[in-house]
Design a protein around this nucleic acid. Structure first.
Lengths: 332, 332
DNA sequence: CTGAAAGCGCTTACAG
DNA sequence: CTGAAAGCGCTTACAG
């Protein structure tokens, strides 16, 4: 591997000048520039990012902390993050935290020792300590969905409150008369807001009862159990709004097993808009988050921050969208 | 951030000794050791991986090149790779190549300039040039599924040939009399071997005809189109073996649309064993690859290689497994 | 068992 | 416009 010294020697100048050329910092004579270019070409020179990093510059790598890449919501997000990172010449390290603060802390330490340039938190945790640590390390970060308890950073999320309302409205528009809700873990803002959206839209009706709200775990299994509970408590409901698509999958399964027709007897709507919603039978109506856009945006914001585009920390709320499919289609 | 020099100073010794202690290279007096430990604790010292990297040691990071994390086969693989990497103190960079050599090359260059320790290729491409480049860079790598055309490296794959045969056998055992096959892109060894497995199992039957083999793209859409073609050509088939689960999903969709009952009229079996196979209706029978195990193994092999555990390059072929579900259950 | 020195490949003031 | 020198935080022979 050629080094900057080799380039300098071949171009007949000093290392400093080559460095200046490379970084476009300071002047360099047109002719010298040409010589440098040629030398670089001839030697197939590529600067060492690690040396650069040691010398105090960017390491051109960011990290993406997420709970579990195996959860179908995250691959698309990760893809988007990586796509825009690549555009800017960054590389992304991905870390599965399983939502455990312990793991998250370990990652942060490891990342710090690698002089990572910034971190995207799509992970659920991130306590006060982490924030402090990051601040003391002076490493930029951006959050997905959840703003850190204390301290500020830019946040990208989508409008879960509106989403919850939209889901209910769609169900009502489809002619449903009594709607149950399976909500996700309430330490997740997303789950919380969707629940609030549901409740606010629904509490004016006289059929409403708190027992229509059943907890789930954002997984298929949780969706199944919750559906069983819901149908036992309220055999007369004609719609289920699941807090995410996985739980909706669970609901479809259980309803099918119980011989309850979807959507004729019970309509089902999910949330997130993951790809697999179109392979169920019936295909699942869902409130789609702009997952890819969220990933792209969060990545872009972080990189800007890293590169010194000072921008006020702010919360970006992206719009959600109803994808209407057969699982809520009440009439031919 | 404390540096090794701070530690040395606090412990009242030289930097060299601290380094020796850190790397467990060379002797260090028991008392000195204690002093170092204390100093490290007090200062909350953490060695800089990038400095270490510059000085010629591992950067403790590996890269995972895959076609697209959005393809449901890869998240589980990636998760496994990351899990074992973490155990060994490594961090993983993930790269979506979309199967394009151009992207792959770019990544390799970028990774090289970061002194990455090793690469896992789960990507489809990897031509001769890449291999040469890697060899010249002297960077360890391991492949998933596909051995590089030329040059050697360890390969982890599962037994696709057996898998193809197993799929057919299962269908025959279920009482199917005429089986079609949707095969994946033939530049992928996995797709090819599954096809061969099918053909070898089936060509002895007089119902067999080459027109029973229809190409797909390993995607849902391709599965749909192929199924349409297949059913038009051979309305009398009673089973479809799809080369992967996504295409099987497509098949289920189309059959449902055509009013053909699965499994009563046509049984369907997929391949890969991705999680979502259990959310379709009927649930999809599939030949499951040990995806997680494959990822864990490939990661472990790479890290061993990096750390100098010289091991003969070899091909590890893991077993596949039939997961029998309703989509092939012909009788109550 | 321990330390001084050189080096990894860059960048960054500081002179000129 | 250009170069010499110091420094980033480590490791690695080489002496002692």
């Amino acid at each position: 591997m050629a080094t900057i010294r080799d380039v300098a020697k071949l171009a007949g100048i000093s290392v400093s000048t080559v460095s200046r050329y490379l970084n476009k910092s300071g002047y360099v004579n047109a002719e010298t520039e040409l010589n440098i270019k040629n030398a670089i070409d001839k030697l197939n020179y590529q600067p060492s990012v690690v040396a650069r990093g040691l010398a105090g510059k960017n390491t051109k790598t960011i990290a993406l902390l997420l709970p579990d890449i195996t959860n179908p919501f995250f691959p698309e997000l990760a893809r988007a993050v990586e796509d825009v990172a690549t555009i800017y010449g960054y590389t992304v390290i991905f870390c599965n935290t399983d939502g455990q603060v312990g793991k998250e802390k370990k990652y942060i330490d490891a990342l710090k020792s690698k002089n990572i340039d910034g971190i995207i938190f799509a992970s659920n945790t991130l306590g006060q300590e982490d924030v402090d640590k990051l601040a003391s390390f002076n490493i930029p970060y951006v959050c997905l969905d959840r703003a850190p308890t204390n301290g500020t950073c830019s946040v990208v999320r989508s409008n879960d409150l509106e989403g919850g309302k939209l889901a209910v409205q769609h169900l009502l528009d489809s002619g449903c008369k009594k709607i149950g809700h399976i909500y996700g873990p309430q330490d997740l803002i997303t789950a919380k807001e969707r629940l609030i959206g549901y409740e606010e839209s629904v509490r004016v009706y006289d059929w409403f009862s708190p027992s229509l709200m059943v907890p789930g775990d954002f997984g298929i299994e949780g969706g199944k159990k919750a559906t069983e509970i819901l149908m036992k408590r309220h055999p007369d409901i004609d719609a289920i709004f699941a807090g995410n698509d996985l739980m909706a999958f669970g609901a479809l399964k259980v309803l099918h097993r119980m011989g309850i027709k979807v959507p004729e007897q019970v309509a089902v709507i999910g949330y997130d808009g993951i790809n697999m919603t179109e392979i169920t039978e019936p295909e699942l109506t869902t409130i789609a988050q702009p997952t890819y856009d969220m990933g792209a945006l969060v990545s872009r914001i972080l990189i800007k921050k890293i590169e010194g585009d000072i921008e006020e920390d702010q919360i970006h709320v992206l719009d959600i969208k109803l994808i209407s499919r057969d699982s809520t289609r009440r009439r031919g």
